[in-house]
Computed example of a mutant assay.
Amino acid sequence: MPQTHYHLEIESDPRNLITVEEFVNYFAVDLGLDEKKINGLLLSVTEATTNAIKHGNKNDINKIVNIDVDVVGDYLKISIKDQGSGFNPAEIPDPTHPENLLKDSGRGVYLMRVYMDEVDFKVTPEGAETILKLKIK
């Protein structure tokens, strides 16, 4: 029987994204997710982690990103925490708006919302947290 909690801690270095991908593949296969769900999950967790490294922790390798994965009933809850000051998701420009189509950033949150059942953002005293929920059953 697969476990119900998975944890990964990385330094804020984009080179650690490969470790994040391996981590996502590991728990997704362990939980028996299908390939379509795994692809959306990989993309969403990688985007959230990239945001945590780049925007939250400002690429400071002395700052940590924590990823916690929990099976809660029929859902997978993934929490990506950085040590940054957070942001207002309402201020992110719509990447589907014509003036934003060619921009090379700004699609991460949009893609998370496409592939996940729920996307939430919290600012805590320790930093910012992105919470992704995916129905797995």
Rank of each mutant, 00 (worst) to 15 (best):
D104R: 07
G40M: 13
L8K: 01
K36Q: 01
L111H: 10
G84K: 07
L102H: 04
L76A: 08
V20C: 09
T96G: 04
A48K: 01
K103W: 15
V69I: 05
Y110P: 13
V65D: 02
P14Y: 02
H7F: 15
R15W: 03
P98E: 00
T46E: 09
L134I: 05
I64H: 06
V72C: 06
S44F: 08
A28V: 05
V72M: 07
L132V: 11
R107V: 05
N25E: 14
G106S: 06
G84Y: 14
K77G: 00
I53Y: 09
S105F: 12
A48F: 15
S79V: 15
T130R: 02
P98K: 02
F27H: 11
N51G: 06
G108M: 07
E21M: 15
D74Q: 14
R113Y: 03
H97G: 00
D120M: 13
M112D: 07
P14F: 09
G108V: 10
V45M: 04
G127C: 12
N100A: 00
E118Y: 02
I10E: 00
V45G: 02
G108C: 00
Y110W: 11
K133E: 15
Y6V: 14
E21C: 13
A52F: 11
L33C: 09
K135C: 06
F121V: 13
L42E: 01
K122M: 04
V119L: 10
I38M: 09
G106F: 02
E118I: 10
L8G: 08
E126V: 14
D74W: 05
D120Y: 07
T130A: 14
D70N: 10
E11A: 12
H97T: 02
R113A: 11
Y110L: 02
D30A: 12
K77D: 08
H97F: 08
E118F: 03
I64Q: 06
F121A: 03
D94K: 00
A48H: 04
E118C: 03
V71N: 01
N100Q: 10
I18Q: 01
I67E: 10
V71C: 06
E129R: 05
S44C: 10
E129H: 02
T49V: 14
S12N: 03
Q3N: 11
T49D: 12
L132W: 04
P89S: 00
G56N: 05
T4M: 09
N66R: 06
N57K: 12
G108Y: 12
T124Q: 13
K37H: 07
Y26L: 09
Q83N: 03
I38W: 05
D60R: 15
T49H: 10
K137Y: 00
Q3D: 09
Q83K: 14
G127T: 12
L134M: 15
H55T: 03
I10M: 13
K58L: 05
I78N: 04
F23R: 04
I67M: 05
N62A: 14
F121K: 08
E126D: 15
V24P: 12
T50G: 07
H97Y: 11
K54Y: 12
G73Y: 01
D94N: 11
I92Y: 04
E11R: 09
D117C: 04
N88T: 06
Y75V: 05
I38N: 00
H7I: 02
D68F: 08
I64L: 15
N88K: 07
H55A: 01
E9Y: 05
L111F: 06
K81A: 15
P95Y: 00
E118P: 06
L76R: 03
